[in-house]
Amino acid sequence: MVNIENLHKKFGKNQVLSGLDLTINEGGIFAVLGPNGSGKTTLIKSILGMVIPNKGVINVLGENIKKNSNYRHKIDYLPQIANFPSNLKVKELIKMIKDLRKNTNEDQRLIELFKLEPFLDKKLGNLSGGTKQKVNIVLTFMFDSPLIILDEPTTGLDPISLIRLKDLIQAEKAKGKTILITSHIMSFVEEVSDEIVFLLEGKIYFRGSISELKTKTNQPDFEHAIASILTDNHA
């Protein structure tokens, strides 16, 4: 599905990714974890072609992504901060993204699911952070793409929307899609992910299931397992 070889990225003097290799197979939920500044977002943005790597090759669904924009038809991306043009209405934004990608009717179901009907005629600038995130989720999930990338999807969501989001993610997984998630909410990651990839200093430190991580670090629960990696490496 996604194949990354020897990925290097430097921002100024700051080496963010140093020779990262990663293969993500089709189907399942992968969580990309790591401390702040470990390169999670850079990795995701490199896959999306928003960050241009200094070195390395990225293939998405067998296509080399360099100087290519068509492969993004097969990716749904939920960005971290949902800041939309404040003059647009919710309805218009959804229509616009459909116009830019392709037509779909899935948005109706999602709008209903997240109870967004009362906001459709409101301008995006007047929405609360959580409502914006819901709009963001609708925009991401309305296209039926084989690869879904979610960058901090839980930001600002109330408990009920969080439950709906989890159901949505599981439903997409059941369709055989590949889902890539980054999050700092460990309980969320533990609940949804099948496999985790732990980044540390621009490289993959650990890859495997959560139970494997617990055995490796000798910790009874996931949160402490992650904490123990961090203290061992930064003590």
């Binding site: 924009s69 960005p79 043009p85 990608r101 925009l139």
Partner: peptide
């Protein structure tokens, strides 16, 4: 002002 929006567009199948 449209920086975040530009990022949204960059993730779509559009040429830079």
């Amino acid at each position: 002002n449209s920086k975040e929006f530009t990022e949204l567009l960059l993730a779509q199948p559009l040429k830079r």
